[in-house]
Design a protein around this nucleic acid. Structure first.
Length: 552
RNA sequence: UGCCCGAUGGUGUAACUGGCAACACGCCUGAUUUUGAUUCAGGAAAGUCUAGGUUCGAGCCCUAGUCGGGCAACCA
């Protein structure tokens, strides 16, 4: 907080609370439901909750909101923990709402004893009707006036398993004509004869979100319970329960969730993409999940930087996908090893090169001298990028063309003398001459060329599968569409190319980050084997040339 | 038609709490460059949703509107 950068509204609240002495230490929590994988929107919440505690010497608990046994699984718990740590955060305590089921059950009895909750036999349809509408008051349930004794007995019987799923619920007794729909006798407990991922078959009644979240906050002494905007209407109930239950008064604050162009951030819909096989899994590199981003080559630093830059406020937002790309490039530029990999090969024969082969040094990272250099083998048969040759180049094209010259990065200047084509007219090979005096580092050829391209020596090349990703959706604002979101999927979100990498790539390790010179940032994919290297493109390099071309 | 949020360049966030609107991304121009990357220099772009009001002075306060979002799951 050393910067004079303005504080966000939550930082202001925390500072005020600390300064006034309301709290000695703040306590926050990150409360995922273990029913799916964490995505970028969660990263925003994680950075916020853990970041606040870190900045103000507080602590953050990781609390799983596991009150719905039918959707929750231990597999998700493990992955969520992994993702939070990978992002660079460590929680004070690992907790579960299910840890509090006994206490919650007692609290429910307390509410009943105060005449503030009742057991309702209405069906869910009947309850929905009783709720009324936003503009019409609701009506009381016929079971609303059961005695405290009766409610106590019935609720206990619910717990004991005397009733079937849906036969009865526990409801708070508030006000069926309240302007806030959530205050119209909200459900507190429902019957679910289901096995819970942690408590097994101990319970057949489970608390609803509203009777678990705030109570868990209170039990843990959470000072600032931060959630997203859609929970604003729940705050009334949150506070009502604190008041009636006489528990620790945690305070709820809401911020706007992250929305990003061309990105779907709904857990339910991401699950649908996985289930219906639109993607290969939760960690398919096209997904906005943390695990997918990790696999794709994003760094935790870049994600934290992104969360920092997007800010925290209460207004709806739609962040430009380009900002995320900027953040990864910014980090990767500093740490990625430079390598030459030809994605779409075109054969080049150097007709006057008769040295057999030689080794040419090339720096590993111009941004980081300590990264050193490696030696590239050069020979008379090379591959260059198909894109780097044009038979009829436009103005200002300064790559290779018939009769033209380019420099091979870290090697020699070559000149194209002959273009060889197949029967279909496709260019299959280039015949070039090289200028021995133009060797990198000791160039006294007097030649000067505008273009520098990457290359790989054919006999030394390592075959590599390269997976190029584009945005998963074609529509910028998926929040505004009316039709099925799957209609907006980008059919070209994945392109696979088989290219050739310089020999140093044989030693690539999963955690390495590379910049394939002039084509983008890449990392080794988990599908990679000793026999076959597979790379993911994390993000392309900025490309002014493509941009000016596009304008033509 | 009820209640609750929100409104500042294209996007996102600021504005020391009433003192001539800043930062970042993006965009444009130029320089450097053995990555058309990076880096560097410069530029365009909002007068703060509207209308009133308070004030010497309003993006910040008041009033009335407008627009956008949310709220009626035995989900969280």
């Amino acid at each position: 907080m050393a910067e004079e950068k303005g504080l966000n509204f939550l930082e202001e609240i925390v500072e005020k609370d600390l300064k006034s002495g309301k709290y000695q230490q703040i306590v926050t929590r990150f409360p995922p439901e273990p029913n799916g994988y964490l995505h970028l929107g969660h990263a925003k919440s994680i950075c916020l909750n853990f970041g606040l505690a870190k900045d103000y010497n507080g602590k953050t608990n990781l609390r799983f909101d596991d009150t719905n046994p039918v959707t929750e699984e231990t597999e998700y718990v493990e992955n969520i923990k992994y993702d939070v740590r990978w992002l660079g955060f460590e929680w004070a305590e690992e907790l579960y709402a299910s840890d509090y089921f006994d206490q919650l059950y007692q609290l429910a009895h307390k509410l009943i004893a105060k005449g503030l909750a009742y057991v309702d036999d209405s069906t869910s349809e009947e309850i929905a009707i009783q709720k009324g509408t936003p503009t019409k008051a609701g009506t009381n349930s016929p079971y609303r006036d059961r005695t405290i004794e009766e409610n106590t007995k019935l609720f206990q019987e619910m717990k004991e398993g005397k009733y079937k799923d849906g036969a009865k619920v526990l409801r708070a007794k508030i006000d069926m004509s309240h302007a806030n729909m959530l205050m119209r006798d909200p459900l507190l407990y429902r019957i679910k004869h289901a096995t819970h991922h942690r408590t097994g078959d101990k319970w057949c009644i489970y608390p609803m979100y509203d009777f678990a979240h705030g109570q868990s906050d209170a039990i843990e002494g959470v000072t600032h319970s931060i959630c997203t905007l859609e929970f604003v209407p729940h705050r009334d109930l949150y506070n009502w329960l604190i008041d009636k239950l006489e528990i620790y008064p945690s305070r709820q604050y809401e911020f706007a969730r992250l929305n990003m162009t061309y990105t779907m951030m709904s857990k339910r819909k991401l699950l649908q993409l996985v289930n219906e096989k639109y993607v290969k899994g939760w960690d398919d590199p096209r997904m906005p999940t943390i695990s997918a981003m990790r696999r794709r080559g994003f760094t935790p630093e870049s994600i934290r930087d992104f969360c920092d830059r997007i800010g925290v406020a209460k207004r709806d937002n739609l962040i430009d996908f380009g900002l995320l790309e900027f953040c990864v490039r910014d980090h990767l530029n500093k740490i990625a090893l430079r390598r030459m990999v030809v994605l779409d090969p075109l054969k080049v024969v150097i007709t006057n090169y008769d040295k057999g082969e030689e080794l040419l040094p090339s720096e590993n990272n111009p941004e980081d001298e300590s990264a050193g250099s490696r030696d590239l083998p050069f020979s008379n048969i090379l591959y260059i990028e198909k894109e780097d040759f044009m038979e009829n180049p436009p103005k200002k094209y300064f790559r290779l063309a018939p009769g033209g010259m380019v420099r091979l990065k870290s090697a020699y200047i070559i000149q194209c003398e002959e273009v060889i084509k197949d029967d279909k007219g496709e260019v299959t090979e280039l015949r070039c001459v090289y200028f021995p005096e133009s060797k990198s580092g000791s160039d006294n050829s007097g030649l000067s060329v505008k273009g520098v391209i990457h290359w790989v020596s054919a006999q030394h090349a390592v075959p590599a599968e390269v997976r190029l990703y584009d945005r998963l959706f074609n529509t910028a604002d998926l929040g505004s569409i009316e039709d099925e979101f799957t209609n907006h999927l980008n059919p070209d979100s994945l392109t696979i190319q088989n290219g050739f990498a310089e020999p140093a790539m044989r030693e690539a390790k999963p955690e390495d980050r590379f910049q394939f010179m002039r084509t983008g940032y890449f990392c080794l994919d988990t599908d990679s084997t000793n026999e076959k290297l597979v790379f993911n493109r994390t993000v392309t390099l900025r490309d002014m040339w493509a941009k000016t071309q596009g304008k033509g």
